[in-house]
Protein backbone atom coordinates (compact mmCIF):
# COMPACT_ATOMS: atom_id res chain seq x y z
CA UNK A 1 0.00 0.00 0.00
CA UNK A 2 1.36 3.36 -1.02
CA UNK A 3 0.31 6.64 0.49
CA UNK A 4 -0.25 9.64 -1.70
CA UNK A 5 -0.67 13.06 -0.14
CA UNK A 6 -2.55 15.86 -1.81
CA UNK A 7 -2.47 18.88 0.54
CA UNK A 8 -4.11 17.59 3.72
CA UNK A 9 -5.80 14.62 2.05
CA UNK A 10 -4.39 11.15 1.81
CA UNK A 11 -5.10 8.45 -0.71
CA UNK A 12 -3.81 4.88 -0.55
CA UNK A 13 -2.99 2.97 -3.71
CA UNK A 14 -4.00 -0.64 -3.12
CA UNK A 15 -2.17 -3.61 -4.69
CA UNK A 16 -5.55 -4.93 -5.84
CA UNK A 17 -5.72 -2.01 -8.28
CA UNK A 18 -7.99 0.27 -6.24
CA UNK A 19 -7.57 3.56 -4.37
CA UNK A 20 -8.65 3.98 -0.74
CA UNK A 21 -9.55 7.13 1.15
CA UNK A 22 -9.32 6.00 4.78
CA UNK A 23 -10.64 9.28 6.20
CA UNK A 24 -13.91 9.04 4.32
CA UNK A 25 -13.87 5.24 4.05
CA UNK A 26 -14.35 5.41 0.28
CA UNK A 27 -12.98 2.74 -2.04
CA UNK A 28 -12.35 3.89 -5.61
CA UNK A 29 -12.27 1.45 -8.52
CA UNK A 30 -12.84 1.79 -12.22
CA UNK A 31 -13.60 -0.11 -15.42
CA UNK A 32 -15.18 -3.30 -14.11
CA UNK A 33 -16.69 -4.17 -17.50
CA UNK A 34 -19.16 -6.55 -15.89
CA UNK A 35 -20.98 -8.76 -18.38
CA UNK A 36 -18.26 -8.50 -21.02
CA UNK A 37 -18.03 -12.24 -21.61
CA UNK A 38 -21.83 -12.43 -21.83
CA UNK A 39 -21.86 -9.78 -24.55
CA UNK A 40 -19.29 -11.83 -26.46
CA UNK A 41 -21.32 -15.00 -26.05
CA UNK A 42 -24.42 -13.25 -27.31
CA UNK A 43 -22.52 -12.41 -30.47
CA UNK A 44 -21.58 -16.04 -31.00
CA UNK A 45 -18.08 -15.89 -29.56
CA UNK A 46 -17.49 -18.86 -27.28
CA UNK A 47 -16.23 -17.19 -24.11
CA UNK A 48 -16.57 -18.81 -20.68
CA UNK A 49 -18.28 -17.16 -17.73
CA UNK A 50 -16.53 -16.53 -14.44
CA UNK A 51 -14.78 -13.16 -14.75
CA UNK A 52 -17.77 -11.30 -13.26
CA UNK A 53 -17.95 -13.53 -10.21
CA UNK A 54 -14.22 -13.09 -9.69
CA UNK A 55 -14.54 -9.28 -9.78
CA UNK A 56 -17.32 -9.31 -7.18
CA UNK A 57 -15.34 -11.73 -5.05
CA UNK A 58 -12.30 -9.41 -5.14
CA UNK A 59 -14.52 -6.44 -4.25
CA UNK A 60 -16.02 -8.35 -1.30
CA UNK A 61 -12.61 -9.17 0.09
CA UNK A 62 -11.22 -5.70 -0.36
CA UNK A 63 -14.24 -3.75 0.90
CA UNK A 64 -14.60 -6.14 3.83
CA UNK A 65 -10.97 -5.94 4.86
CA UNK A 66 -10.88 -2.16 4.70
CA UNK A 67 -14.34 -1.63 6.16
CA UNK A 68 -15.42 0.55 3.25
CA UNK A 69 -18.65 2.55 3.60
CA UNK A 70 -18.71 3.79 0.02
CA UNK A 71 -17.71 2.25 -3.25
CA UNK A 72 -17.07 4.77 -6.02
CA UNK A 73 -16.81 3.38 -9.54
CA UNK A 74 -15.26 5.72 -12.09
CA UNK A 75 -17.20 4.40 -15.03
CA UNK A 76 -17.67 1.31 -17.19
CA UNK A 77 -19.33 -0.72 -14.46
CA UNK A 78 -20.96 -2.64 -17.32
CA UNK A 79 -19.38 -3.50 -20.61
CA UNK A 80 -22.49 -2.79 -22.64
CA UNK A 81 -26.21 -2.34 -22.40
CA UNK A 82 -27.45 -5.52 -23.99
CA UNK A 83 -29.89 -8.31 -23.13
CA UNK A 84 -26.98 -10.51 -22.12
CA UNK A 85 -26.08 -8.08 -19.34
CA UNK A 86 -29.37 -8.51 -17.49
CA UNK A 87 -28.21 -11.71 -15.86
CA UNK A 88 -25.13 -9.81 -14.74
CA UNK A 89 -27.32 -7.05 -13.29
CA UNK A 90 -29.28 -9.60 -11.28
CA UNK A 91 -26.07 -11.13 -9.98
CA UNK A 92 -24.74 -7.72 -9.04
CA UNK A 93 -27.91 -6.79 -7.16
CA UNK A 94 -27.81 -10.07 -5.26
CA UNK A 95 -24.24 -9.23 -4.30
CA UNK A 96 -25.33 -5.74 -3.22
CA UNK A 97 -27.94 -7.23 -0.90
CA UNK A 98 -25.25 -9.14 0.94
CA UNK A 99 -23.26 -5.89 1.22
CA UNK A 100 -26.28 -3.76 2.16
CA UNK A 101 -24.26 -1.17 4.09
CA UNK A 102 -22.11 -0.26 1.11
CA UNK A 103 -23.14 2.93 -0.64
CA UNK A 104 -22.56 3.03 -4.41
CA UNK A 105 -21.39 6.09 -6.32
CA UNK A 106 -21.06 5.79 -10.08
CA UNK A 107 -19.69 8.13 -12.72
CA UNK A 108 -21.00 6.49 -15.89
CA UNK A 109 -18.41 5.79 -18.57
CA UNK A 110 -18.53 5.47 -22.31
CA UNK A 111 -19.48 1.80 -22.15
CA UNK A 112 -22.39 2.22 -19.78
CA UNK A 113 -23.68 5.73 -20.42
CA UNK A 114 -26.93 4.36 -21.84
CA UNK A 115 -27.60 2.09 -18.88
CA UNK A 116 -30.95 2.76 -17.14
CA UNK A 117 -29.34 3.17 -13.74
CA UNK A 118 -32.49 3.77 -11.71
CA UNK A 119 -33.87 0.52 -13.03
CA UNK A 120 -30.70 -1.58 -13.00
CA UNK A 121 -29.05 -0.39 -9.79
CA UNK A 122 -31.71 1.37 -7.73
CA UNK A 123 -30.29 3.71 -5.05
CA UNK A 124 -26.83 3.97 -6.61
CA UNK A 125 -25.83 7.64 -6.73
CA UNK A 126 -25.06 8.75 -10.24
CA UNK A 127 -22.57 11.60 -10.59
CA UNK A 128 -21.66 13.40 -13.75
CA UNK A 129 -18.08 13.97 -14.87
CA UNK A 130 -16.13 16.29 -12.60
CA UNK A 131 -18.46 16.15 -9.57
CA UNK A 132 -16.90 16.03 -6.13
CA UNK A 133 -16.78 13.16 -3.68
CA UNK A 134 -15.33 14.71 -0.55
CA UNK A 135 -12.10 16.39 -1.61
CA UNK A 136 -11.81 14.34 -4.79
CA UNK A 137 -13.09 15.30 -8.19
CA UNK A 138 -14.29 12.22 -10.07
CA UNK A 139 -14.55 11.60 -13.79
CA UNK A 140 -14.46 8.71 -16.20
CA UNK A 141 -12.54 10.41 -19.00
CA UNK A 142 -9.25 11.89 -17.78
CA UNK A 143 -8.75 15.52 -18.79
CA UNK A 144 -5.38 16.87 -19.94
CA UNK A 145 -4.79 18.39 -16.53
CA UNK A 146 -6.57 19.34 -13.35
CA UNK A 147 -6.03 21.91 -10.61
CA UNK A 148 -7.88 20.01 -7.91
CA UNK A 149 -6.96 16.33 -7.69
CA UNK A 150 -9.07 14.31 -10.05
CA UNK A 151 -9.57 10.53 -10.05
CA UNK A 152 -10.32 8.95 -13.41
CA UNK A 153 -10.57 5.69 -15.30
CA UNK A 154 -11.21 4.86 -18.93
CA UNK A 155 -7.64 4.38 -20.13
CA UNK A 156 -6.80 0.97 -18.60
CA UNK A 157 -3.24 2.28 -18.23
CA UNK A 158 -0.33 -0.14 -18.37
CA UNK A 159 3.40 -0.16 -18.88
CA UNK A 160 5.75 -2.67 -20.47
CA UNK A 161 8.82 -4.16 -18.85
CA UNK A 162 11.60 -6.18 -20.36
CA UNK A 163 14.92 -6.11 -22.15
CA UNK A 164 15.11 -3.80 -25.16
CA UNK A 165 13.95 -5.17 -28.52
CA UNK A 166 12.24 -8.18 -27.05
CA UNK A 167 8.76 -9.10 -26.06
CA UNK A 168 7.89 -7.31 -22.89
CA UNK A 169 5.70 -8.09 -19.92
CA UNK A 170 2.80 -5.67 -19.63
CA UNK A 171 1.48 -4.63 -16.24
CA UNK A 172 -1.49 -2.47 -15.31
CA UNK A 173 -0.48 0.71 -13.51
CA UNK A 174 -1.61 3.80 -11.63
CA UNK A 175 -0.70 6.93 -13.56
CA UNK A 176 -0.54 10.43 -12.08
CA UNK A 177 -0.29 13.09 -14.74
CA UNK A 178 -0.74 16.83 -14.14
CA UNK A 179 -3.05 16.43 -11.18
CA UNK A 180 -5.03 13.58 -12.75
CA UNK A 181 -4.74 10.13 -11.17
CA UNK A 182 -5.81 7.41 -13.57
CA UNK A 183 -6.60 4.08 -11.93
CA UNK A 184 -5.93 0.71 -13.56
CA UNK A 185 -8.94 -1.26 -14.77
CA UNK A 186 -10.36 -3.42 -11.98
CA UNK A 187 -12.08 -5.92 -14.30
CA UNK A 188 -10.46 -9.25 -15.05
CA UNK A 189 -11.20 -9.29 -18.75
CA UNK A 190 -10.21 -5.79 -19.73
CA UNK A 191 -6.72 -5.62 -21.19
CA UNK A 192 -4.61 -2.51 -21.00
CA UNK A 193 -3.21 0.30 -23.05
CA UNK A 194 0.43 1.30 -22.77
CA UNK A 195 0.83 4.86 -21.55
CA UNK A 196 3.06 7.48 -23.10
CA UNK A 197 4.90 8.73 -20.09
CA UNK A 198 6.15 12.28 -19.88
CA UNK A 199 8.69 13.83 -17.51
CA UNK A 200 6.98 14.67 -14.24
CA UNK A 201 4.47 11.83 -14.52
CA UNK A 202 4.41 9.30 -11.71
CA UNK A 203 3.64 5.63 -12.24
CA UNK A 204 3.00 2.76 -9.80
CA UNK A 205 2.58 -0.94 -10.43
CA UNK A 206 1.71 -3.91 -8.25
CA UNK A 207 4.72 -6.14 -7.63
CA UNK A 208 4.39 -9.14 -5.33
CA UNK A 209 1.36 -7.81 -3.45
CA UNK A 210 2.67 -4.33 -2.91
CA UNK A 211 2.46 -1.12 -4.90
CA UNK A 212 5.82 0.16 -6.08
CA UNK A 213 6.64 3.35 -7.87
CA UNK A 214 8.33 3.01 -11.25
CA UNK A 215 11.18 5.51 -11.43
CA UNK A 216 11.39 7.59 -14.54
CA UNK A 217 14.71 6.32 -15.81
CA UNK A 218 13.70 4.77 -19.09
CA UNK A 219 13.22 7.04 -21.99
CA UNK A 220 9.65 7.98 -22.79
Amino acid sequence: MTELRFHEHTLHLMPEGAAWDAAQRVLFVTDLHLGKAAVFREAGLTLPDGADAAILQRLSVLAGRLGACTLAVLGDVFHARSPGTERTVAALNTWRQTHAGLRWIIVPGNHDRRVPWAQWLPDAEILSEGELCGPWQLAHHPPEQSDAVMLCGHLHPGIAFGPPRQRKARLPCFWLRRGVLILPAFGGFTGLRLIEREPGDRVWVTVQDRVAEVPHTRRA
Binding site: A43, L45, T46, G188, F189
Partner: peptide, 30 residues
Protein backbone atom coordinates in the same frame (compact mmCIF):
# COMPACT_ATOMS: atom_id res chain seq x y z
CA UNK B 1 -13.13 -16.10 -31.17
CA UNK B 2 -11.78 -12.86 -32.55
CA UNK B 3 -13.70 -10.79 -35.02
CA UNK B 4 -11.44 -9.44 -37.68
CA UNK B 5 -11.99 -5.80 -38.39
CA UNK B 6 -14.06 -6.05 -41.51
CA UNK B 7 -14.16 -2.94 -43.63
CA UNK B 8 -17.18 -0.86 -42.75
CA UNK B 9 -17.92 -2.97 -39.72
CA UNK B 10 -20.62 -1.51 -37.52
CA UNK B 11 -19.54 0.38 -34.40
CA UNK B 12 -21.16 -2.28 -32.18
CA UNK B 13 -18.18 -4.42 -33.10
CA UNK B 14 -16.03 -2.19 -30.95
CA UNK B 15 -17.38 -3.67 -27.74
CA UNK B 16 -16.43 -7.11 -29.08
CA UNK B 17 -12.77 -6.40 -29.60
CA UNK B 18 -10.20 -7.98 -27.41
CA UNK B 19 -6.70 -9.38 -27.48
CA UNK B 20 -5.97 -13.05 -27.82
CA UNK B 21 -3.74 -12.95 -24.74
CA UNK B 22 -6.70 -11.81 -22.72
CA UNK B 23 -8.85 -14.56 -24.22
CA UNK B 24 -6.18 -17.10 -23.28
CA UNK B 25 -6.24 -15.83 -19.68
CA UNK B 26 -10.03 -16.02 -19.51
CA UNK B 27 -10.06 -19.60 -20.82
CA UNK B 28 -7.14 -20.68 -18.67
CA UNK B 29 -8.90 -19.35 -15.60
CA UNK B 30 -12.53 -20.29 -16.22
Amino acid sequence: LILSGAPGSPPTLKSLQTSSGLLWDVFARY
